[in-house]
C-alpha cells in the first residue's frame, strides 16, 4: 500500500533550514528533505548517520593493493622473469607506481559500484520524485502522514507559516 506524505515546498534554502529547525525543536518527525544542491547544516539537524561507503573504499583499496602487488610479483619474478636494466626480479620500487594506480582504480570503481547497488540505481531507472521540481529549484520537506497525533490541518498551516510556498499531499 502506498503511504501518504505531506510536502512543504520551499523556494529558499534559508527558510528551509529555519523550518527544519522549528520542526525538529517541536519534535515533529521529518521523513526526508530533498534539495537540488547540498544545503549546509541539514545533515546535523536531521541526525543523518555517516555513510559507510568510506569503509568499502578502504577495503577495496587494500584488495587492489594486494592484487596488484601479487600480480606484478608473479609475472615479473616467477611466471616470466625478464632482466630489465640489471635490476633484481623482485624490485619493490618498480612495483609502487602500478600498485598505487590499481589501488586507486579498485577503490574508485568498487565504491561507485557499491553506491549504485546500495541506492538501487541502474541505467534506465525511472526516478520516483515527490515533486517534479525537487531537482530543479524547489526544496521539498516531506512528513509522513501517520500516527495518532498527526494533524494535517495544523501541520499544513505550520509549514505555510514557516515559509512554504505550497503544501501538497503525495503518495509513494
Amino acid at each position: 500500500m502506498k503511504k501518504r506524505y505531506m510536502l512543504g515546498v520551499f523556494d529558499d534554502e534559508e527558510e528551509l533550514v529555519h523550518a527544519t529547525e522549528e520542526l525538529v525543536s517541536a519534535k515533529i518527525e521529518i521523513f526526508d528533505i530533498y534539495t537540488p544542491f547540498p544545503v549546509h547544516g541539514l545533515d546535523d539537524l536531521l541526525n543523518i548517520k555517516r555513510s559507510r561507503l568510506p569503509i568499502i573504499t578502504f577495503i577495496a583499496g587494500v584488495i587492489g593493493l594486494v592484487v596488484s602487488i601479487g600480480f606484478q610479483v608473479w609475472t615479473s619474478a616467477f611466471s616470466w622473469p625478464i632482466n630489465v636494466g640489471g635490476k633484481p626480479m623482485f624490485s619493490i620500487p618498480a612495483f609502487v607506481p602500478v600498485s598505487f594506480e590499481v589501488t586507486v582504480l579498485f577503490g574508485a570503481l568498487i565504491t561507485v559500484g557499491f553506491f549504485f547497488l546500495r541506492s538501487c540505481l541502474y541505467p534506465s531507472k525511472v526516478a520516483v520524485l515527490f515533486h517534479p521540481r525537487q531537482t530543479d529549484d524547489k526544496f521539498i520537506l516531506a512528513l509522513e502522514c501517520s500516527g495518532a497525533k498527526f494533524d494535517e490541518e495544523k501541520l499544513g498551516e505550520k509549514l505555510r507559516v514557516l515559509g512554504a510556498s505550497e503544501v501538497d499531499i503525495s503518495y509513494k
Partner: peptide, 12 residues
C-alpha cells in the same frame, strides 16, 4: 620523495 628516489634508482 618517491619520485626522486625511483628515477634515481631506475636510471642508476
Amino acid at each position: 620523495w618517491f619520485s626522486q628516489y625511483m628515477l634515481i634508482w631506475y636510471s642508476n
